[in-house]
C-alpha cells in the first residue's frame, strides 16, 4: 500500500464516521477541531484497524494523535511494523 493510498483511506474513514465533508480535511487539520464524538472515535479506530489489519495501541505514548498527519504517520508506522514482522 502506497503512502498516498494510506492517506486517502484514512481520510475516507474519518470523513465517513465523523460525518465531515471530506473536501475540508487536510493533513494539517486538528482532530480537536473536528469535534469527533467518542462513539465516532471508536468507530474510526475500528475502521482503521479493519482497513489496515493492524492494532492501534491504546497506551502507546508515541502514538499521539493531534492532527490528521499524526494519524497518517501513526498508521504508516503500524503498517511498516507489520510488514517487517511478516517479512
Amino acid at each position: 500500500m502506497t503512502e498516498e493510498e494510506i492517506r486517502e483511506k484514512i481520510f475516507d474513514i474519518i470523513a465517513k464516521e465523523a460525518r465531515i465533508d471530506r473536501g475540508t480535511l487536510t493533513l494539517e487539520t486538528k482532530l480537536e477541531d473536528l469535534k469527533i464524538e467518542s462513539l465516532d472515535m471508536v468507530q474510526i479506530l475500528f475502521g482503521i484497524e479493519d482497513a489496515f489489519d493492524v492494532y492501534v495501541p491504546q497506551d502507546d505514548q508515541s502514538f499521539k494523535l493531534s492532527t490528521m498527519k499524526d494519524v497518517v504517520d501513526g498508521v504508516k508506522r503500524l503498517v511498516a511494523a507489520k510488514q517487517q514482522q511478516t517479512a
Binding site: 462513539l39 471508536v42 468507530q43 479506530l45 475500528f46 484497524e49 479493519d50 489489519d53 492494532y55
Partner: peptide, 10 residues
C-alpha cells in the same frame, strides 16, 4: 475475526 465491533457493549 481479530476484533469485535466497537459498539458491541453499548
Amino acid at each position: 475475526r481479530a476484533r469485535a465491533h466497537p459498539l458491541t457493549i453499548p
